[in-house]
Design a protein around this nucleic acid. Structure first.
Lengths: 230, 230
DNA sequence: TTATTATTGTCTCAATTTGCGACAATAAGT
DNA sequence: ACTTATTGTCGCAAATTGAGACAATAATAA
């Protein structure tokens, strides 16, 4: 069989979406001294479910358990294989290269997207990275390898799933206004929605619980608060 | 680096859908002397794109190029790892086991579904299999490992995509009647559709070309033939 | 020739959903 | 009290969907 450690040739990358109140953002890490930006990712232990590996990776970066996760595509082109890049990263970290030669090999990457409540998270870099930060979905830095393509496909999948799966629950705090929820939908779809139609549609789903009003201190009628739950 | 050959730990499985005129079917292979039924699958060469590997595998089983292919999920649970089963298969084939020990290792499997014209295909078994045949989607034999789950997810994805992607094109011959197309939809969805509504919907898409009528020799009005194309 | 049968293409009508504007209601500031 | 900005809801037209109805027609039977 094989020594302990990670499965060869298999990696995962995660596109972590958060919503700041107006804009959709994702987590991006930056490698030490290289100027290379990448999606947070990782490897799978020999005795670990793939899905669990991804949860473990996200826990390290966000501190969160029980994250909403969706696997959306597996990227397996040979063109992904650029050992020079990984070599640069490893050298910049002054690691003993011989211990990490397996990282210079070809990898197939299973990609997931996650939806989390932006305010719950303090992004944490991993050993190879010197930063892990939120970036506006339309102001991303240039990402290494095919990570821009991965982000694009994540966003596309999220949009396609928007009507079938409940999304706001994971991107918003427990209590929110109808306008908050609409802003989430608009940020994901990238277009304005009609207020009346949106409210009617969402309420007709019968999945929102209405609570007391929220007095914003502004000079206008106060909105109801809602939460998810039967 | 590593010797030539396949990437370790990575496999693919394909759910090949065909339509016989009334029912939806998929290709299932049976391993020599074991009674084990499985989806046709394979491995990825070191210098080969994942998608190309799947096309290569399908070409071997169906003889077809340019197959409609859709990747839908990657299965990575540890519970998939059952070396006894693969051992049984290898022993039944009287292969030199030492040459194939890598097949006894844990695999993560990327699953694809394919849509092909049933009549174009003569299913061909591979080296380890003694048969490769069409099975009715609701009369499948007991499949090994998690292959039943893979089929279920393939069918679910196909249903979800039915409205967004053009499906009939790949499951029907070049010319077909509106009724043929409706039967495809009904087989996939597993429910009857209303004739008038279906015809109106499909025609409104504006993707069908109408041709001369088809005289069936039956005692009733002859239907138009259609083909896909602007 | 004429009726019969099964199936097709199309239409109509009601029911439902959607897009969009309008209205009164209301917190807070003036 | 009056103004302002925003909210919850309603109304109405347009579009879509579900289901049946009807004439047209290819082959067969009388």
């Amino acid at each position: 069989m094989e020594e302990k450690g990670y499965l060869r040739h298999i990696a995962f990358d995660s596109v972590v979406f958060g919503f700041s109140g107006e804009r959709l953002k994702i987590l991006i890490t930056k490698y030490h001294n290289t100027g290379l930006f990448a999606l947070p990712g990782g490897f799978v232990n020999r005795n670990e479910n793939l899905n669990d590996a991804v949860r473990r990776g996200l826990k390290e970066r966000t501190g969160l358990d029980n994250i909403y996760l969706e696997q959306f595509y597996t990227f397996g082109d040979v063109a992904r294989y650029k050992p020079e890049i990984m070599q640069t990263i490893l050298e910049s970290n002054e690691h003993d290269l011989t211990e990490f030669t397996w990282m210079l090999d070809r990898f197939i990457s299973v990609a997931y997207y996650a939806l989390i409540n932006y305010n719950d998270v303090v992004p944490t870099p991993d050993a190879l990275s010197d930063s892990c930060d939120w970036y506006d979905i339309d102001k991303l830095p240039v990402l290494m390898l095919d990570h821009a393509e991965i982000v694009a496909k994540a966003l596309q999948t999220l949009r396609d799933n928007l009507e079938r799966k409940l999304v706001g629950m994971n991107l918003l705090p427990p209590f929110f206004t109808m306008n908050d929820l609409q802003k989430v939908y608009e940020a994901i779809l990238g277009e304005k929605l009609h207020r009346g139609t949106f409210q009617r549609k969402i309420l007709s789903l019968g999945i929102l619980q209405r609570h007391e009003k929220q007095f914003s201190g502004k000079a206008h009628k106060a909105p109801f608060l809602y939460s998810f739950g039967e």
